[in-house]
Amino acid sequence: MPSQQREPVHLRRIDPARNMRRFYCLIVQPTLFGGASLIRDWGRIGTRGQTMMETFDCPADATNALVRIERTKKRRGYRETIAGAE
C-alpha cells in the first residue's frame, strides 16, 4: 500500500488510425487541513481539457486512488510520457 508522496503522472494515448490523441494527468497535493487532494486533468492533446479534484482525509488514500486510476488507464492503452519527448 503506497503511502509516500508520488511524482505527477502524465499519460498519453495516441492512435492515428482512430484520430485519437488524448492525455491524462494525475497529481496528489496536500490540503491545508492535513488531508490530500487528487487532481485529475484529461482531454485531447492541444486543448485545455477538463479537471476534477477529489479530497481525501488521509494522504495515503489519495495516493492509493492515484495508483488505481493509473493502473486502469494503462490497461486502456495510455502510456507514460517520456520527459523531453514530443
Rank of each mutant, 00 (worst) to 15 (best):
17 A>E: 13
85 A>M: 14
19 N>F: 02
19 N>R: 09
39 I>P: 03
36 A>D: 02
36 A>N: 04
57 D>E: 13
20 M>E: 11
56 F>W: 10
80 E>T: 02
38 L>W: 04
15 D>R: 10
81 T>A: 14
70 E>R: 13
8 P>W: 11
14 I>A: 06
38 L>S: 04
62 A>T: 10
36 A>F: 03
53 M>N: 08
31 T>E: 08
70 E>Y: 06
39 I>N: 09
55 T>S: 12
79 R>M: 08
5 Q>P: 00
40 R>C: 05
32 L>T: 06
35 G>K: 03
80 E>N: 14
85 A>C: 11
47 T>F: 05
14 I>F: 07
36 A>C: 07
62 A>S: 05
72 T>V: 01
48 R>Q: 13
74 K>T: 09
25 C>N: 13
23 F>Q: 05
14 I>S: 11
31 T>R: 05
9 V>T: 13
29 Q>L: 09
79 R>A: 12
43 G>R: 01
53 M>P: 00
85 A>S: 15
66 L>I: 01
11 L>G: 08
20 M>G: 00
73 K>N: 08
86 E>A: 14
60 A>M: 06
46 G>A: 10
11 L>M: 09
7 E>R: 13
35 G>E: 07
72 T>I: 03
3 S>T: 15
80 E>M: 04
18 R>I: 00
18 R>L: 06
7 E>A: 15
14 I>M: 06
27 I>R: 15
25 C>W: 03
84 G>T: 06
86 E>D: 13
69 I>Y: 08
59 P>D: 13
74 K>D: 07
51 T>S: 14
42 W>E: 06
74 K>A: 05
18 R>D: 11
38 L>A: 05
47 T>E: 15
15 D>M: 01
55 T>H: 08
29 Q>P: 00
17 A>Q: 12
7 E>W: 04
54 E>P: 00
32 L>E: 15
72 T>L: 07
6 R>I: 03
76 R>I: 00
77 G>Y: 12
29 Q>I: 10
54 E>D: 14
34 G>F: 07
65 A>F: 06
26 L>D: 09
51 T>F: 02
11 L>P: 09
16 P>I: 02
13 R>Q: 15
69 I>E: 13
67 V>R: 14
6 R>E: 11
39 I>T: 10
68 R>P: 00
65 A>I: 00
81 T>S: 09
76 R>D: 11
40 R>M: 12
86 E>R: 13
78 Y>V: 03
10 H>V: 00
45 I>L: 13
43 G>S: 04
71 R>G: 07
